[in-house]
């Protein structure tokens, strides 16, 4: 079996999942909310990109910039108007709120952007790169690079900058961080906005393979959540690792076992894997204090 070709394709989809998963883990670590609406918020700002591109004839990069502004504003709005006011709600209450947000964005999208499905072209329409006997489109290469570079930049920011230190401190203990003078509210606001932009990018990257409808990010959402489960919720790099692993495993299962059931088999395998390593690949043991 040819290995390089499916590997390259996996890296391409893996980048999409990795960006979405990074958004989920950023929100989880800073606000302790399982962000079920990551996919639908990405869908909304991604649809905004397609809408601007389609209706105004603006170049793709300009549309993506507009989408980024939409994503940031949405992230700010959700954190400011909803999540921040949930301090007294239980953990499960916060989860349910993000579930409610899924429905809000799903309902808003057709009202704002119309019900006609939109199309979004590839950033680089044509051109292939030949590596041995495998092909990689320039667009695929761009997607891989986007995923890897953005993840790398985020890790550098997290580890080397003052903002990163504030985020890590908030992630490790929110109330202590606040006592130390870290503006935790700004940190979570930033995390939600960044998650929004990451979701938008994931949407723009996956959009050319499908049509832009309110449900086109569902698979990304499910896979990104699973990437977090597989990688573990305790580190920032675990979910990224999980995302690429899932993409690779999914492609090879589809090629060698079943083209229809590949993903389903993979999901079941991950559930079984949880029995062996409940905290994920790089997860640390989770201790609950009384």
């Amino acid at each position: 079996m040819e290995l390089l070709q499916p590997l390259l394709r996996s890296l391409e989809t893996g980048s999409v999942y990795a960006l979405a998963a990074l958004g989920i883990i950023l929100v989880w670590r800073t606000s302790r909310v399982m962000h079920f609406a990551q996919g639908s918020m990405g869908m909304f700002s991604g649809t905004a990109v397609a809408f601007v591109f389609d209706r105004t004839g603006a170049p793709l990069w300009a549309s993506v910039l507009v989408g980024a502004v939409v994503a940031i504003l949405l992230g700010f709005a959700v954190d400011f108007a909803v999540i921040r006011r949930l301090r007294r709600a239980t953990a499960v209450g916060k989860e349910i709120v993000t579930l409610g947000l899924i429905m809000v964005f799903l309902g808003l999208a057709p009202i704002v952007f119309g019900t006609d499905p939109l199309l979004l072209p590839k950033a680089i329409p044509t051109g292939d790169l030949t590596l041995g006997n495998a092909n990689l489109s320039y667009n695929g290469l761009l997607n891989i690079l986007l995923g890897v570079v953005i993840a790398a930049v985020l890790f550098v920011v997290l580890q080397k900058t003052k903002i990163g230190l504030a985020i890590r401190a908030t992630a490790s203990n929110e109330s202590t961080a606040r006592l130390m003078g870290i503006p935790t509210k700004t940190v979570t606001l930033l995390a939600w906005a960044t998650a929004g932009v990451l979701g938008m990018l994931a949407a723009v990257m996956i959009a050319p393979t499908t049509t832009v409808t309110p449900t086109f990010m569902n698979t990304v959402q499910v896979t990104a959540l699973f990437a977090c489960v597989l990688g573990g919720f305790q580190t920032f790099y675990g979910p990224v690792l999980g995302a690429y692993l899932i993409a690779i495993a999914s492609n090879f299962l589809k090629l060698s076992v079943s083209s229809v059931w590949g993903d389903q088999i993979l999901y079941l395998l991950i559930l079984v894997f949880l029995l062996v390593r409940p905290n994920g690949l790089v997860g640390k043991t989770y201790l609950k204090k009384v």
Partner: peptide, 22 residues
């Protein structure tokens, strides 16, 4: 006739109930 109205109705109700009327 607004498309997606029932979704917004349910979604907003979830958020509002959790926030203000637990």
């Amino acid at each position: 006739d607004t498309p997606g109205l029932p979704y917004i109705f349910s979604g907003v109700l979830i958020v509002v109930v959790i926030m203000f009327f637990p």
